[in-house]
Write a protein that binds this DNA or RNA. Structure first.
Length: 908
RNA sequence: GCGCGCGUGGCGAAAUGGCAGACGCGCCAGACUUAGGAUCUGGUCCCGUAAGGGGUGGGAGUUCAAGUCUCCCCGCGCGCACCA
């Protein structure tokens, strides 16, 4: 490829300016209290020593540095944020735009297992490659703030935050996390052991026995998705559910706040919806059913609690179902049913969650022989177990109302359980199988009430009787936080005589031990358990050998960027207050975005893919709220505005993947067209948030546009000389580049009215589009300007200067090169020059062409002075010959005049 | 099944309820040129020689006026999915 003549010498221009920015630390962001060197570009615009201008924190989702390197999807979001970062800098804001590496993770570890190379080594290589690629795109990151989650200086604070979680409990009275020391133990707890156990049960980080899939042959735990029919996907070995000691984080305590606070942040509707869905709040009631003891020798009373969103249908409950794993199954099953129950439970246990929830599966289940008493009418109803009831949701037991629940209906029909209608559907709809709200029937004191009323009434009745209460249930579960992996943060925890204790803060970081074998051990213990001398501490204590999941490092990285080299604290208080605090919009400029006017807090703009819609974004919000409660950060939410860039598909319209062979490598694009063209094309492709297919041929458009910009300013003859010189001595490129002169058509003269109009129209459109994140139409406005300016015989310097400021965020290398050649002796370097402001007066037209419609169809046009009144417009329209002939003999019903826009004549 | 989003030229796409198709790709014609896969100029929604007519997935509605608002249907994408 790449035999065509280059549009302009981007291959010389781009490295030159990248090196320039690096040498001058052009994009270094300054913290309060920093001494800003006088010669730094920032100081040329913002006098050092004075208070910093308002901040703007614009963040990318930092990448996992995989071995595959960047694909063209990465630079989509990165280019968008870079354009905005450069734009906000030009507006005079102090911009924080950092980049780092989310470098713990499974691929590095698996690669290590296969090749015996230490993950540290491959991670370092991958980071170096990612960094080279990202730098070759000319992004204005502050590389002083680069962070790496695997760096001991970073993971130390990840561990520190874990300790904050560990040392806290959630106080439901204050609805926030508080230090564990404030937790009063119940008076009956006398011994230290009791108290410790009680506190352990309340901590935000706690230990729990959890069943996980364990595969003996592979020597590792497997995810649910990796197990089919009790066999491992890989290799087909048997896998068993094995309870293992796991660390959990009490995210469920924050369910309500995580849900509610979504209303305070500016995220897309669909993203918020996904989080709401994940949290899965539903209002209903918990109802206790007493298990019949008729014929039983035991004295114990058993109660089964169910959760229902439809307590109003209690009269319609004709049976109950427990999840097969429910604790009470063994106790309540009658002797003659024990064997079938045992068999059914064994069958269920061998299935993966995936299989159990498979669609279109026939309902299965067995009768336990036991009955429960409906608290409302004393009726005895059979208790079944069935795998359509999940232990993990609600109470793991349901009251089945087949008449008004699709699943219960299916089950009841299959097993011939009675079906009793208790809700009348509105509008004569079929009532059996009706799931909506209607009117209660056959329901005692609820009969005749609409569903909402019936719910209230039954709940207060249940509460009076003491056999039920109103509850809110969440789908959200506590976060399983431990992994049996090597390449992750070790827990800062030690075990003594069966209880856990923290590693003192002063002993952080706890670094992973040196290992040569990263595989899990045969016993199911994490690989860290192999490092005996690391695990065993003096006095019989041992280290926790699980590690944290990959999410840990990304839960707080945006905070470390604020103060990345601080060794005293995870993030300095002043830095946090400045960058995360409410930004004060400058009153002098109307150009600050609407978000600034709405007084946002936290990260001002966060751009990244939808793949993190729930996991990362929910986990990070959770950690942030804990830090907020404990007084370590000043905002309740971390990311004020969040935008998801749309996926870029391959040329075939399919998702880019190695297997399909449709991956486009940015390196190739940069080699053939340059970074500026790639940046421009990525943004020109379509709206940022839309999914859109890549088309390499399409890069030609922006590439030619940049070629036109080059030719708009450069002298043809000196360029020919450059080309010839380069052909003769290719090594002298950089030197020859400096000799290229600008065209003599560029003069320091007053622009003409049309020239002013062209540039001011461009300023207006580009500015408005940047505020609205409409990069594609902003670029189109730049193209329109250049297309017109190409026809000018004389090119005023001031107009080109303004244009280059507008171009700089999009194509920074070319803009810098041409700006440099303009030789304006500007004290302020291009990236810090004030953004131009358009003058509306210059855009006013003297005359307007106004369409004249009849019944909404354009029939003619009139040219009128821009000042024409509605009356004059109407008269001019009616005076047209064409219009006259068309309305001849017809009755005019109405004439609509939209000033400066159109005239529409409605005929009867 | 439920929720959300989207359907506009050959393609990527524009369009505060007010002239549909800006800008770009591709294509066609021409200019310059030894040459063109560089550049420049013109053209390019459909039917029609034209006048004119039709046109934003389909159907209805609101409106002087609908790609845009409302309802129904069809298609595509994403998310959740036995969530009680």
């Amino acid at each position: 490829m790449s035999v065509t003549r280059r549009q302009y010498p981007f291959d010389l221009i781009e490295p030159k300016w990248q090196e320039h920015w690096e040498r001058h630390e052009s994009f270094r962001a300054w913290n309060p209290g920093d001494t800003i060197p006088r010669q730094h570009p920032f100081a040329q615009r913002h006098a050092p020593g004075k208070t910093l201008p308002p901040k703007y924190y614009i963040l990318d989702m930092f990448p996992y540095p995989s071995g595959a390197g960047l694909h063209v999807g990465h630079p989509e979001g990165y280019t968008a944020t870079d354009i905005l970062a450069r734009y906000k800098r030009a507006l005079g804001l102090n911009v924080l735009h950092p980049m780092g590496w989310d470098a713990f993770g499974l691929p590095a570890e698996q690669y290590a297992i296969r090749t015996g190379q230490h993950p540290r080594k491959t991670t370092e290589e991958n980071i170096a490659n990612f960094k080279r690629q990202i730098k070759s795109l000319g992004f204005s990151y502050d590389w002083h703030r680069e962070i790496d989650t695997t760096d001991p200086a970073y993971l130390r604070w990840t561990q520190w935050i874990f300790l904050q979680l560990y040392n806290s409990w959630f106080n439901p009275r204050t609805n926030q996390a508080e230090p564990i020391a404030t937790l009063a133990c119940p008076p009956e707890m006398k011994t230290e052991t009791d108290k410790r156990t009680y506190r352990a049960s309340k901590r935000l980080a706690y230990v729990s026995e959890m069943p996980v899939w364990w595969c003996e042959q592979l020597g590792t735990v497997l995810a649910n998705e990796e197990v089919t029919d009790g066999m491992s996907e890989v290799g087909g070995y048997p896998a068993v559910r094995k309870p293992m000691r796991q660390w959990m984080l009490r995210i469920t305590a924050y369910a309500e706040r995580l849900l509610h606070d979504l209303e305070t942040i500016d995220w897309s509707h669909s993203l918020k919806e996904m989080q709401r869905n994940w949290i899965g709040r539903s209002e209903g009631a918990e109802i206790a059913f007493k298990v019949c003891r008729a014929g039983s020798a035991e004295n114990t009373d058993y109660f089964i609690n169910v959760f229902t969103t439809r307590p109003d249908t209690l009269y319609g409950a004709t049976y109950m179902v427990l999840a097969p794993e429910h604790k009470l199954v063994d106790q309540i099953s009658t002797p003659e049913h024990r064997e079938v129950v045992r068999q059914y439970r064994a069958l269920t246990a061998s299935k993966s969650d995936l299989e159990r929830t498979e669609l279109a599966k026939e309902k299965t289940g067995v009768f336990t022989g036991a009955h429960a008493i409906n608290p409302l009418n004393g009726e005895q109803i059979p208790i079944w177990i069935a795998d359509y009831v999940l232990l993990s949701y609600g109470t793991g037991a349901i009251m089945a109302v087949p008449a008004h629940d699709a699943r219960d209906l299916e089950f009841a029909q299959k097993f011939h359980v009675p079906i009793r209608q208790v809700v009348q559907a509105p509008g004569g709809e079929e009532s059996i199988g009706f799931l909506g709200e209607g009117t209660s029937v056959n329901s005692g004191f609820m009969t005749g009430l609409p569903t909402a009323e019936a719910k209230k009434k039954i709940i207060s009745w249940l509460e009076e009787q003491g056999c039920g209460r109103k509850t809110i249930n969440y789908k959200l579960r506590d976060w399983l936080f431990s992994r049996q992996r090597y390449w992750g943060e070790p827990f800062p925890i030690i075990w003594k005589n069966g209880h856990h204790e923290v590693v003192p803060e002063t002993d952080l970081p706890v670094l992973p031990p040196a290992l040569s074998d990263f595989k899990p051990t045969a016993s199911g213990e994490p690989p860290l358990a192999r490092a005996k001398e690391w695990v065993n501490l003096p006095g019989g204590a041992t280290r926790e050998t699980n590690t944290m999941p990959q999410w840990a490092g990304s839960c707080w990285y945006y905070l470390r960027f604020l103060d990345p080299r601080n060794e005293e604290i995870f993030c300095g208080r002043d830095a946090e207050a400045y960058w995360m605090g409410v930004s004060k919009s400058s009153p002098s400029s109307g150009l600050l975005s609407a978000t600034a006017d709405k007084a946002p807090s936290g990260v001002d703009l966060y751009i990244g893919g939808t793949e993190h819609a729930v996991l990362h974004l929910l986990y990070a919000r959770f950690w942030h709220k804990v830090l907020f409660d404990l007084g370590h950060v000043s905002t309740a939410e971390p990311f004020f505005k969040l935008v998801n860039q749309g996926l870029i598909l391959g040329e075939d319209g399919q998702k880019m993947s190695k297997a399909r062979g449709n991956v486009v490598n940015p390196d190739d694009m940069i080699r053939d067209y340059g970074a500026d063209s790639l940046r421009l094309y990525e943004m020109f492709l379509g709206p940022l948030e839309m999914v859109k297919p890549w088309n390499t041929a399409g890069v030609e458009g922006p590439y030619r546009f940049l070629g036109r910009v080059w030719r708009l300013l450069v002298d043809e003859q000196s360029e020919t000389a450059f080309e010839q010189g380069l052909a003769a001595e290719p090594k002298k490129g950089p030197e020859l580049l400096e000799k290229i002169k600008l065209t003599s058509a560029i003069k320091d003269v007053e622009p003409s009215a049309p020239q002013l109009k062209a540039i001011h129209a461009c300023i207006k459109k580009v500015t408005e589009d940047l505020e609205g994140l409409r990069f594609n139409t902003a670029i189109s406005a730049l193209m329109i300007f250049v297309n017109e300016a190409m026809t000018w015989k004389m090119k005023p310097v001031s107009v080109l200067r303004d244009f280059l400021i507008l171009l700089q965020p999009f194509a920074p290398h070319l803009a810098e090169e041409l700006f440099d050649k303009l030789n304006l002796q500007s004290a302020i370097p291009l990236p810090y020059l004030p953004w131009p402001v358009h003058n509306p007066a210059l855009l006013v037209e003297a005359t307007l062409e106004i369409p004249v419609q009849i019944n909404g169809k354009v029939r003619d046009r009139i040219v009128v002075p821009a000042t024409a009144t509605s009356q004059e417009l109407e008269e001019a329209a009616l005076a047209c010959e064409k219009i006259k002939s068309l309305i001849e003999g017809k009755t005019i019903k109405k004439i609509i005049v939209v000033p400066k826009t159109l005239v529409n004549i409605a005929l009867a």
